[in-house]
Amino acid sequence: MSSLRDQAVLQAIFNPNNPFGDDFWLDAEVELTDDDSRFDSVLVEQAKDLELRGVSLAEAGNIDTALELFGRAIAIIPERASAYNNRAQALRLKGDTTGALSDLDKAVELSGGRGRTASLALVQRGLLHRLSQRDPEALQDFQQAAGLGNKFARKQVTLMNPYAALCNCMLGEMMANLRNPKASTPPSV
């Protein structure tokens, strides 16, 4: 039976594009939740219902009606981050990057940078920053989301680190050479 450290090393060898760290071997994303206990539970249920309906409508392509439902959820509990994050996704689908970024900023602010909504909002905002070629801002968002346990964000942090990418590439080549030594070319002298 192998130790957790052994498993981590094997993961690094066979998945060189993944980050390597203390919790690298964990397959499951850290279970994050949002703390809605400070809000009236009846209002939370109403807002969640509107959000779920809005998500379904957005997935079906009815973005305008989805935006309306997200707006109603925000009106019910303006201090709750989730509806802002969901509305940002719909705004992004509609092509309103500025509006989406504004809602993502609000979601991160209201969540205090903690919980599921913060993780999702940070990743989404990081992706929008990358698309706008604002890599320092993107990296900061991905690092914060990675700190919350978001596996996608961890991969993005690694991909944005040129040194880690180079090391991963060299490790991948080395492993390929070990698997198939006849295919590798000897170094020229």
Rank of each mutant, 00 (worst) to 15 (best):
residue 84 Y to W: 06
residue 88 A to P: 07
residue 102 S to N: 08
residue 42 V to K: 15
residue 71 G to Q: 04
residue 105 D to Q: 12
residue 106 K to V: 12
residue 78 P to G: 03
residue 56 S to G: 14
residue 26 L to E: 13
residue 72 R to S: 14
residue 96 D to V: 01
residue 126 G to Y: 05
residue 125 R to I: 10
residue 22 D to V: 15
residue 67 L to T: 01
residue 36 D to E: 11
residue 29 E to R: 04
residue 102 S to R: 10
residue 25 W to N: 12
residue 60 A to H: 02
residue 41 S to M: 08
residue 134 R to K: 15
residue 69 L to N: 13
residue 19 P to H: 09
residue 140 Q to I: 06
residue 116 R to H: 09
residue 154 R to Q: 14
residue 76 I to G: 02
residue 43 L to F: 07
residue 151 K to Y: 00
residue 106 K to C: 10
residue 86 N to I: 04
residue 65 T to P: 03
residue 139 L to G: 00
residue 108 V to L: 05
residue 133 Q to T: 14
residue 67 L to W: 01
residue 22 D to H: 10
residue 78 P to N: 03
residue 23 D to K: 11
residue 13 I to G: 00
residue 144 Q to H: 11
residue 36 D to F: 10
residue 31 E to W: 08
residue 71 G to N: 03
residue 105 D to W: 10
residue 149 G to E: 04
residue 151 K to P: 12
residue 85 N to Q: 13
residue 51 E to I: 15
residue 83 A to M: 03
residue 56 S to M: 11
residue 111 S to R: 07
residue 139 L to A: 02
residue 87 R to V: 02
residue 45 E to C: 10
residue 121 A to T: 08
residue 120 L to K: 11
residue 91 L to I: 06
residue 95 G to D: 04
residue 87 R to P: 05
residue 14 F to W: 12
residue 53 R to K: 12
residue 50 L to D: 03
residue 63 I to S: 02
residue 135 D to T: 15
residue 16 P to M: 00
residue 15 N to T: 08
residue 61 G to D: 01
residue 138 A to L: 01
residue 32 L to G: 04
residue 90 A to Y: 01
residue 82 S to K: 12
residue 70 F to S: 03
